[in-house]
């Protein structure tokens, strides 16, 4: 195992792949068969171009050490929460730097890249756990939805606020919610934009376990250790059998998002968000 430098970040590599990485937005480490992916970009892990680049690096590395790992845990190191979703301020700023046609093309490119990342994690041949707390909104909720299990701190809060901006969720949220939940709950989350607590989402079957404040990562680790007792090929076959990836609907979601994105109402909503002085303007 040789420590190497990778674009300014300290990493460790084995013959199989990059075992650990510390970037500006996220970090990962493979230990005892479990990969831990930690998010740590202030204020609340907003997913912009930097996070996307590091997520792409992660899924590339993931292919290299799948033989060594049986589980993946995704969690946040930040007190504010798991993830507040897409970096809307960056999205607005970039869209203002180009004409509408180029902005629409840029958004489609961004969505297709994030979908490739999330689809890879969704279909990964290992068991994935989202250990969430606090704000789990928009794209952050969608990141949790790609995981096989959600372990939630009792204070976690989930929401799809996109309709307030004249948009729909764009990181695969609707198809994955429809895969996992009844349509009435999906409509409630999507059309009202209200936030749900972890208890509500456990009642409807989305959250696997609710734990005391500050305990989500510990419980996720205990769950990951349990998963390591099973035959890998059986776990992979079981996951493939029970967790289809709704590729056609995911592509349709990108198309609808892009159709909506070019409307003036969206530009107005994004401007209002970007110019807000509230540190957490995504909150209700």
């Amino acid at each position: 195992m040789n420590p190497v430098r990778d674009e300014g970040h300290v990493t460790k590599e084995t013959g199989q792949g990059m075992e650990s990485f510390r970037g500006e937005a996220l970090s990962w480490e493979l230990k005892d068969g479990v990969i831990e992916l930690a998010l740590h970009r202030s204020p609340c892990n907003e997913i912009g171009s930097l996070t996307l680049e590091e997520l792409e690096k992660f899924v590339h590395a993931l292919e290299g050490f799948q033989d060594e790992a049986h589980a993946l845990i995704i969690y946040s190191e930040l007190k504010a929460g798991f993830c507040a979703g897409a970096d809307l301020r960056e999205l607005y700023r970039r869209s203002q730097e180009m004409d509408r046609q180029d902005a629409a093309k840029g958004v489609r490119d961004y969505l297709e890249r994030i979908h490739r990342v999330l689809n890879t994690i969704d279909a990964a041949p290992l068991t994935t756990i989202a250990a969430v707390h606090g704000v789990t909104f928009g794209g952050g909720f969608e990141l949790a939805l790609v995981c096989d299990l959600i372990v939630a701190d009792k204070m976690a809060r989930f929401c799809f606020p996109e309709l307030r901006l004249g948009l729909i969720p764009g990181f695969g949220g609707i198809p994955r919610l429809k895969r996992d939940l009844g349509n009435a709950v999906v409509r409630d989350l999507l059309l009202t934009g209200r936030s749900f607590n972890a208890t509500k989402l456990q009642q409807v079957g989305l959250v696997s376990q609710i734990v005391a404040e500050g305990e989500a990562l510990r419980v996720a680790r205990a769950t990951a250790a349990q998963l390591g007792k099973f035959d890998r090929q059986t776990s992979i076959a079981a996951k493939e059998f029970i967790k289809p990836i709704p590729y056609e609907e995911l592509q349709r979601e990108i198309d609808i998002f892009c159709e909506l994105f070019v409307r003036p109402a969206v530009e107005s909503g994004l401007r209002k968000f970007a110019e807000s002085e509230d540190a957490q303007p995504y909150l209700p």
């Binding site: 606090g134 204070m155 809060r157 540190a279 909150l283």
Partner: peptide, 22 residues
């Protein structure tokens, strides 16, 4: 507003209710 959201969640747990943010 982040702490207000935290308060909302605590109140929902305490009173065993759902309280939509709107």
């Amino acid at each position: 507003s982040l702490q207000a959201l935290d308060l909302l969640t605590r109140l929902e747990h305490h009173f065993h209710i759902e309280l939509p943010d709107y």
